[in-house]
């Protein structure tokens, strides 16, 4: 298969920032997967005399990522990928490649990073199709994050994006295009594809309701009732007109109940995060214990 070269790798500012944040908040080195899609954009060239007047460019767009929180999460010491550990993906989000974040080290792919990228690109089930094209591509994007070896006061992180050439087995540095909102980036939204399909609103006449829709309506109503805390929709009608003042109390009561529910949820989240934090701390302590005992034996 011929080597399909990516012209650029695009990533949205918040996604990149969030990846950097994951590295800087993790206790040690991290790695993870990069998802997105590759699009072939055909641009017409000015030279109309030649028969082939179109130039096609491949752009990889990173839409999401998954951070493992620990190094060597889906591969072994030799960099061989354990494919069952690679998460599943859908039609819109293909596995584009992976990333590695390591503190205080040189910004060059390491021996293992090369092996992992090579191994990942060779797994046939991860091949995906390119939008607007009949060609397929293997996961070949690798993004490396490091922190500088010296002087971290001003310059805290650095990153580099690579495409792995599967035919000659080498990394090619690519520019990482950070896409932000603004007129300068309008072009990037031409190939926008939503991650979640927007729900189809049923605006047509009520009489077309089928049995299935009816059933759906019932479940929706149940969910709504859960939030409404027994406050029926009919009562809202009384909020209009002269008798409204009598009902403010009832409405305030509803809000209070909703707030109490939100508060109890917050407490639940808080206590569960505390538990997670405690577990993480415990894990860290255990790891140190292992490392100490390993040296002394």
């Amino acid at each position: 298969m011929a080597y399909l070269q990516l012209q650029k790798i695009a990533i949205s500012g918040p996604t990149l920032a969030s990846m950097i944040q994951r590295l800087s908040s993790s206790p040690g080195d991290v790695d993870g997967f990069i998802f997105g899609h590759v699009t072939q954009i055909t641009t017409l060239s000015d030279d109309t005399s030649s028969s082939d007047n179109s130039a096609s460019q491949l752009t990889a767009t990173i839409t999401s990522f998954l951070c493992s929180g620990s190094p060597l999460s889906f591969y072994d010491a030799l960099g061989r990928v354990n494919s069952p550990k690679v998460p599943s993906f859908n039609q819109q989000n293909h596995l584009l490649g992976w990333f590695s974040g390591r503190r205080q080290s040189a910004i060059r792919p390491s021996m293992r990073e090369f092996a992992v990228t090579n191994s990942l690109s060779k797994i046939p089930q991860f091949k995906f199709s390119i939008k607007n094209s009949s060609e397929t591509l293997s996961p070949c994007v690798f993004i490396l994050f490091t922190t500088p070896l010296t002087d971290q006061l001003i310059h805290t992180h650095q990153y580099r994006a690579y495409q792995f050439n599967t035919s000659n087995k080498s990394f090619h540095a690519k520019s990482l295009d950070v896409v932000n909102i603004g007129p300068a980036f309008r072009g990037h939204y031409d190939n926008f594809a939503p991650n979640c399909a927007l729900p189809l609103m049923n605006c047509s006449a009520m009489d077309e309701e089928s049995m299935y829709a009816n059933k759906e309506k019932v479940t929706d109503q149940k969910q709504l009732d859960l939030c409404a805390e027994g406050f029926q929709i009919e009562r809202l009608r009384r909020l209009m007109g002269p008798e409204a003042t009598n009902y403010t109390e009832a409405l305030e009561d509803l809000y209070e109940k909703m707030l109490a529910k939100a508060e109890s949820l917050t407490r639940l989240v808080e206590s569960s995060s505390a538990k997670v934090f405690e577990l993480e701390n415990n894990n860290r302590k255990l790891r140190y214990k292992v490392s100490r005992s390993a040296g002394s034996e």
């Binding site: 620990s70 021996m111 090579n118 790891r287």
Partner: peptide
Amino acid sequence: ADFPLAAPDVIFGPEDEEFHPFH
């Protein structure tokens, strides 16, 4: 240091980009 059981990794010099000892 956080993962003492994991084997170390090596980064070679900038001139040795094509050196892939185990491939």
